[in-house]
């Protein structure tokens, strides 16, 4: 056992932890905006996957990072609007709608990947661009802290900035007030002329853009290539983080870090002599466990109030 601890309390592990936390933070923040408007977006998994592929393709065809970024975000928006249209306008149940989006995305990405590269597994055969890593002046020279916090990908730092942007958006701006009102009591919002459906469209789009960033992080930062089904449930883990953080940006940020811890741990454990399947299973088992512990805790605090 001590071996594990020496791995965990290493600079490498903390660095890895932040690396694997980034996509979950980004997507979970998106889920917060959506949830606050009263929509649980179960199509996040598919949205991430689509953006992960189209980001790579954009940078390949456009021969640069910017076209990749633009196409990635645009594709995520298109998928989100599709979800929004079917859920909000055609009144499709959000679970079914989300599942449909995920099924569609899984097929479409492989189909397009094969059309472009001739292969169904990864995009390794085409040259795509990645988001750069950033060394932060001063911070990078501090021992240990600098090694852990500096040198991360641009999107990682962007995720931290976006945490505060989302907080500002939700709690300080008119749009945020409207999103919260629509989510808590849509009839009240409607009665003062706030277009509920339009506000939800906007919230789902914001969520889509954030999920797009999370997806692109996987194929253009975490790894330099797209691989089929590479999101591997991260969209759902982000939803779990959003639920566990009670759709509060700070709480969700912490929950995302908790789930990412196990993801990071599974990376470390691969070195130890534990069957690979158990290591791979860990982030999912941890999510079930995390959600359960959170729910038990919530049930107990409700009970305590009673007595």
């Amino acid at each position: 056992m001590p071996a594990i601890f020496s791995y965990i309390f290493s600079v490498d592990f903390f660095f890895m932890w932040i690396r694997v936390a980034t996509p979950i933070i980004l997507v979970a923040l998106g889920a917060v905006v959506c949830e606050r408007s009263g929509v649980v977006n179960l199509g996040l998994e598919g949205t991430m996957l689509i953006a992960a592929l189209f980001g790579v393709l954009g940078s390949y065809f456009g021969k640069g990072l910017l076209p990749g970024f633009l196409l990635g975000i645009a594709s995520a928006l298109v998928v989100s609007l599709l979800f929004a249209f079917f859920h909000l306008v055609l009144k499709a149940n959000n679970v079914l709608c989300g599942t449909a989006i995920n099924t569609l995305a899984a097929g479409l990405t492989v189909f397009v990947l094969q059309m472009v590269t001739g292969e169904k597994g990864t995009s390794a055969s085409i040259k795509s661009y990645s988001y750069p890593e950033v060394n932060i002046p001063i911070l990078k020279d501090i021992p240990i802290l600098g090694e852990i916090l500096s040198g991360h990908n641009l999107l990682t730092y962007l995720a931290i900035v976006l945490l505060f942007v989302v907080m500002f958006l939700l709690f300080k701006t008119p749009l945020g007030l409207r999103i919260r009102a629509v989510g808590e009591n849509p009839h009240a919002a409607e009665s003062v002329g706030i277009p509920v459906v339009r506000i939800r469209f906007i919230a789902i789009s914001i969520c889509g853009a954030l999920a797009g960033l999370g997806g692109m992080y996987l194929s253009m930062a975490y790894l330099p290539i797209f691989a089929r089904d590479m999101t591997a449930g991260r969209g759902f883990i982000s939803l779990a983080a959003c639920a566990m953080g009670r759709a509060n940006p700070i709480g969700v940020f912490v929950s995302a870090l908790v789930f990412a811890f196990f993801d990071g741990l599974s990376n470390i454990l691969q070195v130890l002599r534990i069957p690979a399947e158990f290591v791979q299973m860990m982030p999912y088992a941890a999510t079930i466990l995390g959600l359960t512990i959170y729910s038990i805790h919530r049930a107990h605090s409700l009970q305590r109030k009673h007595s």
Partner: peptide, 28 residues
Amino acid sequence: HQHFMLVPSLTVTENLILGIEPVKGLRI
């Protein structure tokens, strides 16, 4: 309305200005 159209967790002011928020820059 017979059943009030108010958002319970928001303040009186927030409920009243909903949809006609006075703004300063980006913020309310």
